[in-house]
Design a protein around this nucleic acid. Sequence first.
DNA 1: AACCTAACAGACAGTCACTTCCTAAAAGCC
DNA 2: GGCTTTTAGGAAGTGACTGTCTGTTAGGTT
Lengths: 194, 194
Amino acid sequence: MANGLRQRWRADAMRTIQERALDLFDERGFVAVTIEQVATAAEVSPSTVYRLFGTKEGLLVADEFDTLDDDALREVLDPADPVGSLLAAVLRYEDAPGETAHRRVRYFFEEPSVRTAACANLDRAAQRITPLLGDSGLGELAARVAASALVFGYFAALEQWHRDGGTKPIATYVDEGLAPLRGLWPTTPAARRS
Amino acid sequence: MANGLRQRWRADAMRTIQERALDLFDERGFVAVTIEQVATAAEVSPSTVYRLFGTKEGLLVADEFDTLDDDALREVLDPADPVGSLLAAVLRYEDAPGETAHRRVRYFFEEPSVRTAACANLDRAAQRITPLLGDSGLGELAARVAASALVFGYFAALEQWHRDGGTKPIATYVDEGLAPLRGLWPTTPAARRS
DNA sequence: AACCTAACAGACAGTCACTTCCTAAAAGCC
DNA sequence: GGCTTTTAGGAAGTGACTGTCTGTTAGGTT
């Protein structure tokens, strides 16, 4: 069902398009590269690029998190300890060296339009997380604020990581930076970890 | 110096352009209105609209906060009690009924591209606030996270206000929603208020 | 008051991100 | 193997945004 030829073609195409795009961006700079050039380099049509990534910035900010359905999201994020869940996700992610990840992050903080797109993405993530956080007894307003603080706090930690040169693991920054946010949730997160 | 004819023309033009644009947006919808139509309605040239607002979304998210210089910002924002400072600013703002403010906010949460632009604006605000927060003894990482939590927490409160119909004052939502964030800063904010 | 110059509004042309619609082909299903 | 549905690609159009250039005018100088 999720492994038909079409899905495989789609996944492969997305990966190669993203890699080709990254090559071009690194070589000539983000703004100087047109979608048509990316499409040509990846041997697909421009419309395919738009269908798969939506926007030019989407080539860089497209994330497997976005494609997560609600059930999978609920599995990943523990409403009683969102900071811990996020940290676990980051650790899992750093273990699997996607290689393109580090190349991509640079543009988040160096290309304004990409940064904007990343913020929009985070905002969407916060909106998805908000109802889940409501499960832990938080009111709607508190859940909304907490979700924003969580995702944009993560982004802030990522920025600090980037500004420091990206040597230490990202998880360090997330753990330290978001530690104060653990207090935002009524229940004690320590009890959940084991 | 700040009251020459040119500055006055600029301020007047911005106000009328914004009002005309809002009229058109309310009438035909944001996406259906072109910059050229706005320019015609406001009796200026399209290039003037771009010079004054930068983007189409800028017509809605342009904010007097953005034009604040660093000194004025430092005066408004108390590093020891940023939540209180923000609340005070909101209260000051609600007292002066700019009239267009409430009309504008609607688009923040109903027009995706405007929401994106608003997020980008908030992100820029967080970057400006970060160094100020460093003054209160926070480390760079902590200051960055706190600044993000503050501005996007404010946005979350504003969204809740909007979703509730915009009847109660915004300050209520900000006060209640950001209350947990007061704990993020080491010094006690209560001592500052009087 | 006449003059200078620096800024600024407006006009124009060009680029490219993005959309919409269509057609052909390949995948999935029986 | 035939039928339906999905989807990749192509083509044409729209409009946001960017440069550059020119005429004008505000604001200061003598």
